[in-house]
């Protein structure tokens, strides 16, 4: 299978899947390595990452963030992204896991 399609799918532990641009998703070194066509991971073949420790709500924010990051790559004085306070700690865990 052509492993380098422009979009990849991220799946949360409660079954939500998000289709994101590869370039955006790969700002996370973790996801990047999972999807590396040179690596022999299953994820790379299917273009799909299942993230067992992240739930749908958090993953949605993560996807929002990766696009936000991509959009502001070369900008300066970027306004901070907003997200609900109650998600903060879970999001922090996820960001630590994904290293973003």
């Amino acid at each position: 299978m052509a492993s380098s399609s422009d979009y990849v799918t991220l799946v949360s532990n409660d079954g939500f899947s998000f289709v994101v641009q590869r370039s955006a998703a790969c700002i996370s070194p973790v996801i990047k390595r999972m999807l590396d066509p040179k690596g022999a991971f299953m994820e790379a073949r299917d273009n799909t990452c299942t993230l067992q420790n992240i739930n749908g709500m958090v993953l949605e924010k993560v996807c929002e963030y990766v696009y936000y990051h991509e959009k502001h790559k070369d900008a300066r004085d970027v306004p901070d992204m907003d997200f609900p306070t109650e998600l903060c700690l879970e999001l922090l865990m996820a960001s630590d896991y994904l290293n973003i």
Binding site: A75, D80, M81, T85, C88, A94, S95, I100
Partner: peptide, 25 residues
Amino acid sequence: GGAKSLSQLCIQKVAQHHDDIEELG
């Protein structure tokens, strides 16, 4: 330059709401 990292954003937010946190898990 560019956007802040997501963990930085989260940590910032946690610090902002330090009064309301009961446990960090």
